[in-house]
Simulated assay, not measured.
Amino acid sequence: RPGEDLTSRLIAAEVDGVRLADQEMVGFVALLLVAGHITTTALLGNAVVTFDRHPGTDAALRADPARIPAAVEEVLRWLPPFPELGRRVTRPVVLGGHEIPADSLIMAHLGAANRDPARFDAPDVLDVTRSPNPHLTFGHGIHFCFGAPLARLEARIALRMLHERFRILAIPSYEDVVHQNPAVIIGVRRLPVEVGRP
């Protein structure tokens, strides 16, 4: 029963008489679920925790909402939702003085890459005005995350809405915060907050 939703449109989509194969549609919908939901959910929780742990940050963003996009990028650098990216080496390469043979699988730890002092000034300092911010949270080059623009847009909109709806947004006790398994995803599973309405 096709409707007006995105999945129905994907099923009906056709370019020069060619439609997406079932496997392509399933892959695309799964990607949208991860990029459009899981990543954004983790990013928003990470933003609330990060701003709460760095006093004055939330107030500064409320005073100047135009700084929210840069703040989103810094939270992505600071706490990347997915901690590792796997890559297969296509040819022999020397990395850090070690030769890695072709066809090897390597894992890049984004938390380490995003705090590389050779790439970032004061990498262990949260700076919501950091620019440029060449973090690798969404990958790089041909492997750049297809859903990155959607996750960024959703996070910017959601943070603005939180600021409009709540005068105060604070975490009363970190003992009540439950984190995800950080080997899989960096984010909170349970995040009780205190809010104050305007």
Score class of each variant (00 low, 15 high):
173 S>E: 10
121 D>R: 13
173 S>P: 00
169 L>A: 11
124 D>I: 01
41 T>Q: 11
94 V>F: 05
126 L>S: 08
163 H>Q: 12
179 H>R: 15
1 R>K: 14
110 L>E: 05
53 R>Q: 12
184 V>K: 09
159 L>D: 01
186 I>L: 06
92 P>A: 14
182 P>D: 08
76 L>Q: 01
107 M>C: 04
197 R>G: 08
174 Y>T: 11
163 H>R: 14
105 L>Y: 12
105 L>Q: 12
15 V>A: 15
89 V>D: 00
109 H>G: 07
44 L>V: 09
79 L>T: 13
64 D>V: 01
135 H>S: 03
8 S>C: 03
180 Q>L: 14
4 E>W: 06
106 I>M: 02
73 E>K: 03
185 I>A: 15
160 R>N: 13
3 G>N: 08
103 D>S: 10
142 I>Y: 01
167 R>E: 15
2 P>F: 04
78 W>M: 07
197 R>S: 10
45 G>T: 06
195 V>I: 15
168 I>Q: 14
47 A>C: 07
74 E>S: 03
102 A>Q: 01
187 G>Q: 03
134 P>N: 03
148 A>I: 01
10 L>A: 02
38 I>K: 11
79 L>Y: 13
106 I>S: 01
18 V>A: 13
33 L>T: 04
141 G>V: 05
87 R>Y: 00
52 D>I: 09
94 V>D: 15
115 R>P: 03
129 T>I: 09
17 G>P: 13
23 Q>S: 14
30 A>M: 13
198 P>S: 05
75 V>C: 05
167 R>Y: 09
169 L>C: 06
107 M>G: 08
158 A>E: 03
12 A>L: 12
5 D>F: 02
27 G>K: 07
112 A>Q: 12
30 A>E: 12
169 L>G: 06
121 D>P: 02
193 V>M: 08
82 F>S: 12
70 A>I: 00
109 H>E: 11
144 F>R: 03
127 D>L: 07
103 D>A: 09
192 P>A: 04
3 G>S: 09
12 A>S: 12
37 H>E: 11
128 V>E: 09
